[in-house]
């Protein structure tokens, strides 16, 4: 049962069977990180280039650790040290990188669609590590893996995604993934951050966090991008927290075994109170651990593709 594709550009392209395979493989990989020697030889001799045009510590180090635990070699290119500053176009940059014979490019870029464009110019696998306001597929995969770990399923669960939906690639990837896997997705945020375009998805929209949290199985809180505050999407941080921030009182509306998730980095007291972020329902740090497992699974599945026949090997 192989993953018959060269690139991972978004969850939108995946079908439920492929998502299931990635999640299941990720669950098997989780144990490797608990071993005394946290390394398996599967990707020995493979080279993976992390090409990050946007600041990231979590995703970049998670991809790097995932690659290293599979014995691949990794190289990091970041925006500040790359030739983009010297005027090179991104296409020229990746063509140069292609000449160094990598097996995969992990790309993060502030512009939506860059991974897709790059995938047409290189021979190696391209993995989208977040592009503009488009998708962040590995975040959605690790979120689904974390939910499954606790609920043993995705189908039928009420998942509320709350916060800055408009600018969030995490929200978009999760909407695709969760609805494909049969979850009931609710989106919630102030009208300025929850545009009507989202009605095209198979989701419910609400401006009332109480309605979103009512009997929810999972609450995914999104980061308020404080650097966008100058654009006046809401009157004040205080007012945002009062209406859309997750605190203990609002959380009582959800199911008693609700999971609180956040892709990080969190703004304490803006979208989530410290009490809830550190509380018993929070699985925020488990998400980070699962991120490594699911990225290992993805690298394994993309970099060691096989034909569709089963072999005898006893």
């Amino acid at each position: 049962m192989p993953l018959n594709r060269r690139h991972l550009l978004g969850i939108e392209d995946l079908d439920p069977v492929e998502i299931e395979l990635i999640l299941k493989t990720g669950e098997s990989f989780r144990e490797i990180s608990a071993r005394p020697i946290k390394k398996v030889p599967a990707l020995r001799g493979k080279t993976i280039i992390n090409l990050f045009f946007e600041p990231s510590t979590r995703t970049r180090s998670s991809f790097e650790i995932a690659a290293k635990r599979l014995s691949a070699d990794t190289v990091n290119f970041s925006h500040s040290s790359s030739s983009a500053l010297k005027g090179e176009t991104i296409i020229d940059t990746v063509k140069n990188l292609q000449s160094m014979a990598p097996d995969a490019l992990v790309v993060r870029h502030p512009a939506s669609g860059i991974p897709l464009v790059l995938s047409k110019h290189v021979k190696c696998c391209v993995i989208n590590a977040g592009d503009g306001m488009h998708e962040h597929p590995t975040q959605a995969l690790l979120d689904m893996m974390t939910i499954r770990e606790h609920k043993q399923k995705l189908k039928g669960l009420k998942v509320a995604i709350i916060g800055d939906i408009r600018h969030s690639r995490v929200a978009r990837s999760n909407i695709y993934g969760l609805t494909k896997m049969g979850a009931k997705v609710w989106l919630c945020g102030p009208p300025t951050l929850l545009p009507r375009e989202f009605e095209q998805f198979d989701v419910r929209l609400t401006w009332d966090i109480r309605e979103a949290l009512e009997k929810a199985d999972v609450a995914i809180m999104l980061r308020i991008q404080l650097e966008r505050q100058g654009e006046n999407f809401f009157p004040s941080v205080k007012e945002y927290f009062d209406r859309f921030g997750l605190d203990r009182d609002k959380l009582r509306l959800a199911k008693p075994d609700v999971l609180v998730m956040h892709p990080g980095p969190i703004n304490r007291g803006v979208e989530i109170s410290s009490e809830v972020a550190d509380g018993e329902f929070s699985v925020i740090l488990e998400q980070v651990a699962n991120g490594i497992a699911v990225r290992m699974a993805l690298l394994y599945l993309l970099l060691l593709p096989g034909a569709s026949t089963q072999v005898v090997w006893d």
Partner: peptide, 23 residues
């Protein structure tokens, strides 16, 4: 033990084996 990731023919094997957990 699931030895999939330690196979010496992992890069040449026709079918991609499903990895299951080691315990």
């Amino acid at each position: 033990l699931d030895i999939t990731l330690y196979r010496d023919d992992l890069t040449t094997v026709a079918a991609q084996p499903v990895v299951e957990s080691t315990r």
